[in-house]
Design a protein around this nucleic acid. Structure first.
Lengths: 160, 160
DNA sequence: TATTGTTATACTCTATAACTATA
DNA sequence: TATAGTTATAGAGTATAACAATA
């Protein structure tokens, strides 16, 4: 019954540590993983509406409101009105956060290079494809499970 | 400013999907990632006291109480008195959960085999060492950050 | 009528501190 | 005195539903 420690386990540990490392507290407001993820997204795609952020991060709009509230209070982002749609709000990285994200991206790239550097150049393509395949497989498993659960709910609804 | 998608990014995605996949709801009580992690630990090391679980999972004893409460209500684990220490409680996997964990471990091992299979046999050692090195590096970065933060707090306390 | 963001409400994860029972 | 677990309290992440303003 005792499972072995697998490559997957070790990689999962790296992911966990990486998230923890990204989530450093700077001034007052602590940068939690979720908040960092939002900043990361902003750094990658530029100023966005909250709705766009909710869609891209795959979380509820309500959730974005809370994250942006905290980040705004901490001075990491600013809210400004949308030029043409008065319902919408544009969220942008603050100047100081820009610098911080640049540093974070640098560290990130370095760690990633270290990791890929551990694999022989000829194998890198294969490793990436392997990761791709697992990602695909997991998505399928999750989709199948969601479908099964939805079916169960339907059965239960009929039974009532 | 736009960062590239790196290996690390993809691994983070795998990590996220993997956790999501493990956290399937069965009967009433949903199996969240944290709850699944506790079950996983129990499957790996056998019946344990709550204190031992808290230590191994690196969370507070209070946290374990909550997780075990939910898992016990869902029928995944049972609580029983410690034979010699009347303060302590032994948490064990329920019979049905045993079967479930066996299946989960099987899926897990398969995914991991797929991943390592993507790398040439001669390079697997190197990959593992690379992962090890990054893990070490991240741990150092996190420790350094914690120390920096503690120092700041001390400075602040002196200032008051 | 549809969409954007917010308020209201609720559940989970997590931590620290105080407390009880036992060692 | 120290340890195992719980109650009390609190902050963060997340979701759904109801609602306001605007499209």
């Amino acid at each position: 019954m005792t499972p072995e420690i697998t490559v997957l386990d070790r990689l999962l540990e790296v992911s966990e540590l990486f998230q923890k490392d990204m989530a450093r507290a700077f001034d007052g407001t602590p940068l939690t993983p979720s908040r960092t993820r939002l900043l990361w997204e902003l750094a990658a795609t530029g100023p966005s509406t909250q709705h766009a952020l909710a869609t891209r991060l795959e979380v509820s709009p309500r959730n974005i409101t809370g994250l942006v509230d905290a980040l705004e209070a901490g001075g990491y982002v600013t809210r400004s009105p949308h030029p043409s749609d008065r319902r919408a709000i544009i969220v942008s990285l603050a100047a100081s956060a820009h610098e911080m994200m640049r540093q974070m991206q640098h560290d990130h790239a370095e760690l990633s290079a270290d990791l890929i550097g551990a694999v022989a150049p000829d194998d890198r393509e294969a490793l990436l494809r392997g990761i791709e395949a697992i990602t695909e497989r997991l998505r399928e498993l999750i989709a199948a499970d969601e479908q099964r659960r939805a079916e169960e709910q339907r059965q239960k609804a009929v039974g009532e």
